[in-house]
Design a protein around this nucleic acid. Sequence first.
DNA 1: CTCAGCCAGGTCATTCTTGATCATCGCTCA
DNA 2: TGAGCGATGATCAAGAATGACCTGGCTGAG
Lengths: 97, 97
Amino acid sequence: MIKNDLAELLEKKANFNRTKAVLMVETILDAIKKALLAGEKVEIRGFGSFRVVPKKSGFGRDIRRNRQIPISGGWRVKFRPGQDFKKQLKQQSIEQA
Amino acid sequence: MIKNDLAELLEKKANFNRTKAVLMVETILDAIKKALLAGEKVEIRGFGSFRVVPKKSGFGRDIRRNRQIPISGGWRVKFRPGQDFKKQLKQQSIEQA
DNA sequence: CTCAGCCAGGTCATTCTTGATCATCGCTCA
DNA sequence: TGAGCGATGATCAAGAATGACCTGGCTGAG
């Protein structure tokens, strides 16, 4: 699924032009992005929650050079699916196991 | 940031009632959720991508009973921030380090 | 107000992380 | 719509970190 698919959904839900629908999608995603960049936690019941956690991880490795690479540090964005979401994911596993 | 915050954003972007704006947010998030449940990958350029990967994890542990608990397995939802997103996250780390 | 989500805590396996590169595909300009 | 552009994915390696299990209470979303 890509941005256009989401835009199509909005077209069906409301009377938007494709252009405007895309704008809506971008608005929401950008808003979420900005909130996360602000260090805020984004929590939507029934969907999931995004959390920004400090990256404590230490080392990576460059295979070709066979050298260790210090991880610059920064923030990590964790997405955690909601209860309902997780429940449905388990059903998926049953179907596709 | 919660659902209402996103709704406010949409109110400012278009001429929605709060109710309708909330519906838009839910529509998009639900669409993403459904796509993921369908096993689809959601990839939005400039934002990030969601991918559903099979969970191979094996054991958890109940501290109180001190017993091992077999993890049922299932699917895991991975969110990966886009390049731009990650770049900005690094700047955040500089500011808050 | 009500119910979902988070936290903590222990432990261990899975996973993520970095980096570089090619091929692919999302996205945008015409 | 079509073609081109630039971002994204997979990978290899190794080590460090997190997730998942449960429970119960508190906080916060709705």
